[in-house]
Design a protein around this nucleic acid. Structure first.
Lengths: 342, 342
DNA sequence: CTGAAAGCGCTAACAC
DNA sequence: GTGTTAGCGCTTTCAG
């Protein structure tokens, strides 16, 4: 590959001039400019961004650490991050913690030693070691979707979450409005704020409606298909099963759909189900899933926007964004008409 | 951050010694070794991999270029790449061409100038510009899942595809064995080899069974949900609609499921559907989808393995792998019992 | 077994 | 407007 030196020689100018032409950091005479341009194209010059980064201390690269890639929701977020990164002139190094906090930490170490300019962290949710590490290294971070526990919420770092509590309220109120009273809840991992907050919304709505919370109707999943399936079976096996379900993410909701189907129940005739996320699949499940939509790609886009602005000014105060959610009514819910089949 | 120089000073040895201790490239006395180790931990030394890469001309970073992120199948492949990369000591810079060949090219340019050691390319399928570019730059590449047209198959580059044709045969023979004769096909984009080959398998099976190919029963989709939905509606609107469908990927198959459902048809009682991919969703659709499974994560893993081996020895001859597929029987197909409802 | 010296390719002070 | 110089932090000869 041709180096900047080759270009300079060929154009008959100094290396620094070439550099300035490339970066537009200096006024250059028209003629020089053209000579340099010509030399660059003639030699197919491609700057070595490694060298550039070493010198300028900026890599134009962001690290993204995801908890796992099993959830299409994260894929969406990643998509948003990548796209926004591209628009801002940043590349993205992907890390997948594989739900293992140790691997999460190991990855962060590598990302930082590769000198990423900043990190988008979707925490595994297990302890705050990752965050502590990043803080210790004074790395620009933005936390997305969840924090590893409320203790970390007050950290002086940027966060982009969604209105989880409001989403839980929205879903539950909707089911209440349809006349349901025995409303079950399939939660996610309890230490994830994203799940915990949704359940809080669920409780809140129930209490405000004067229905009260039946703790035995809340069963914990882990945000994966399978657990939604199992949790739903468990709920349906109860002596008096719920007539509606608020499931804390779509993946589990689809699992629940499947379990209901297998149990010989029709959705929504026999049981209503509302999910959370609005992943692409939600509009193509059978029946199509009513769900609380959160703007996954925008989550990634906002995260990058915050991160990039912080890179410009490290002194900015910590910002905490909550992106709005809304209920998408599809075909998985129906007015309660009294218990017939159960 | 502490530099290697700081460590050397503190340990009272030369910089080169520290370097050799870190990389294990030299025999070092026990004592020196320990002193260096101690200094490193005391200073929380973290090597600057940028500098290392600049000097050693290896970044331990691979570029991955995906055509888009809308398809969970690619997310799976990416997962496999990331995991295998991690195991081999490589990081992954993600690029998303967004189905735009120009962006694909722009991305490759950036990836190369960031000095990635190699590129995993899942082509957008539009022309071979990306490949040409990579060849011109003499970059190690492995092409995954598809090539941008058969003309490029003979290129001297490593490829990891799956047995698409065999998959098409498998699916179609299965439907034939169930007694179906009017078997429709929803294909992907025609210029993608992955789609084209599957359709070839479909034709092949039909011809070998003496059934013959009804061209009007083949309709093209684009590998997205929506197009499967539309294609299925189109097929069902025919005067004599097919009793079974081979759909070239699961995303479209789920769309087809949805269309069939909306048309008042039961799957599999009224129409049988078999997909291709076996994405996670396939086991949770209603009904669960019978499909030709391809090892998505392994595709990524093999790609990385080939790429890494090539990085070790650039002279290796081009290798072409075809990973096996197999039929996963679930609940979306049934023996043909004569046309009742249609 | 260890050290000195020379860069990787680029940018950014500092001169003129 | 342009050139000279000094590194970024590391690895890798080349000497000993």
């Amino acid at each position: 590959m041709a180096t900047i030196r080759d270009v300079a020689e060929r154009a008959g100018v100094s290396v620094s001039t070439v550099s300035h032409v490339i970066n537009g950091t200096r006024r250059v005479s028209r003629e020089t400019q053209e000579r340099v341009q010509a030399a660059m194209t003639a030699l197919h010059y491609q700057p070595n961004r490694l060298a550039r980064s070493l010198r300028s201390r900026r890599t134009q690269t962001l690290g993204v650490l995801l908890p796992n890639s099993a959830n299409p929701f994260f894929a969406q977020v990643l998509l948003g991050i990548e796209a926004a990164g591209y628009d801002h002139g940043y590349n993205v190094i992907l890390g997948n913690a594989n739900d293992d906090p140790r691997r999460e930490l190991a990855y962060l170490d590598i990302l930082l030693s590769k000198q990423v300019d900043g990190v988008v962290l979707v925490s595994t949710g297990a302890y705050g070691a990752a965050l502590d590490f990043l803080m210790a290294h004074d790395a620009p971070v933005v936390m997305v979707d969840r924090s590893p526990g409320e203790a970390y919420d007050s950290f002086q770092i940027d966060t982009v979450f969604v209105e989880n509590t409001r989403g839980g309220v929205l879903a539950t109120e909707y089911l209440l409005r349809l006349g349901h009273r025995a409303i079950g809840c399939i939660s996610g991992p309890s230490l994830l704020t994203s799940s915990a907050e949704r359940v809080i919304g669920y409780r809140q709505a129930l209490i405000e409606a004067g229905v009260g919370v039946d703790e035995t109707l809340i069963v914990a999943g882990d945000f994966q298909h399978e657990s939604g399936y199992r949790a739903c079976r468990e709920l349906l096996a109860r002596p008096s099963p719920p007539t509606a379900l608020f499931v804390c993410n779509d993946l589990m909701a689809v699992g629940a759909l499947c379990a209901a189907h297998e149990a010989g129940l029709r959705v929504p005739e026999d049981i209503s189900i509302v999910g959370f996320d609005d992943i692409p699949l939600a509009s193509f499940s059978v029946p199509r899933l009513t769900t609380v939509a959160q703007p996954a790609r925008q989550l990634g886009a906002r995260a990058v926007a915050l991160l990039v602005s912080r890179l410009k000014d490290r002194q900015l105060p910590a910002r905490h964004e909550r992106l709005p959610v809304h209920l998408v009514e599809r075909d998985s819910c129906q007015r309660y008409k009294g218990r017939e089949l159960l």
